[in-house]
Simulated assay, not measured.
Amino acid sequence: MTRLPEIIQTYLDAYNRKDVEVMLACLAQEVTFQNISDGVVTAETVGRAAFETLARAGAEAFRSRSQRVRHAITVADTTLVEIGYRAEVAMDLPNGWVAGQVLSFQGASAFRVQDGKIISIIDQSDTVEGPS
């Protein structure tokens, strides 16, 4: 596995700890974010303030969550990361996930870094697996 750029490793570590402040410190002011699940865009933000709202809601929605890097490659300013994701839902959510449900799935993320900050994140995943 390729070593991740420090700013991306810091972001992922903060994500796993649900430390939104550190996550935000890793982002450029004009950061863009997109989440794609089964080919459908399920969340999208432009700017750090909009990302913060989404990140805080996400941190509250899960008792625990973990992104584990399986493989990564960096070319120029872009890092592609294969991710294993696991989380436990903290509360019943509008999408049908229920408190206590464990989610486990594979995905990939594309991070673009500019001037030492993350300027773009695109997360993609397939259907969520796990017992309800």
Rank of each mutant, 00 (worst) to 15 (best):
M1D: 12
T2R: 12
R3A: 15
R3F: 08
L4S: 01
P5A: 07
P5T: 05
P5G: 05
P5L: 04
P5D: 06
T10H: 07
Y11N: 07
D13Y: 10
D13A: 14
A14R: 02
A14W: 03
A14N: 04
Y15R: 10
Y15W: 12
N16A: 07
R17T: 10
K18C: 08
V20S: 02
E21V: 12
V22S: 10
M23R: 01
L24E: 04
L24K: 08
A25I: 04
L27C: 11
N35Q: 15
N35I: 11
G39C: 12
G39K: 06
V40I: 14
V41W: 03
A43Y: 01
A43R: 03
E44W: 06
E44D: 13
T45C: 12
V46C: 14
G47Q: 05
A49T: 15
A49P: 07
A50I: 04
A50R: 01
E52Y: 01
A55C: 09
A57I: 10
A57C: 07
G58W: 00
A59Y: 05
A59W: 04
E60M: 14
E60L: 15
A61L: 01
F62E: 02
R63M: 12
R63C: 13
R63P: 06
S64R: 12
S64G: 14
R65D: 01
S66L: 15
S66H: 15
Q67R: 15
R68S: 13
V69L: 02
V69R: 00
H71D: 11
D77N: 14
T78M: 14
E82H: 12
G84P: 03
G84A: 15
E88F: 06
D92M: 08
D92V: 10
L93N: 00
G96I: 05
V98Q: 13
A99Q: 10
G100T: 08
Q101K: 11
Q101F: 02
L103A: 10
L103D: 02
F105H: 11
F105C: 13
A108R: 05
F111T: 00
F111A: 01
R112K: 11
V113I: 13
Q114W: 10
D115S: 14
D115M: 09
G116A: 06
K117F: 11
K117W: 09
I118F: 03
I119R: 10
I119F: 08
S120N: 09
I121F: 00
I122W: 04
D123E: 13
D123M: 02
Q124D: 11
T127S: 13
E129P: 07
E129I: 15
G130R: 04
P131C: 09
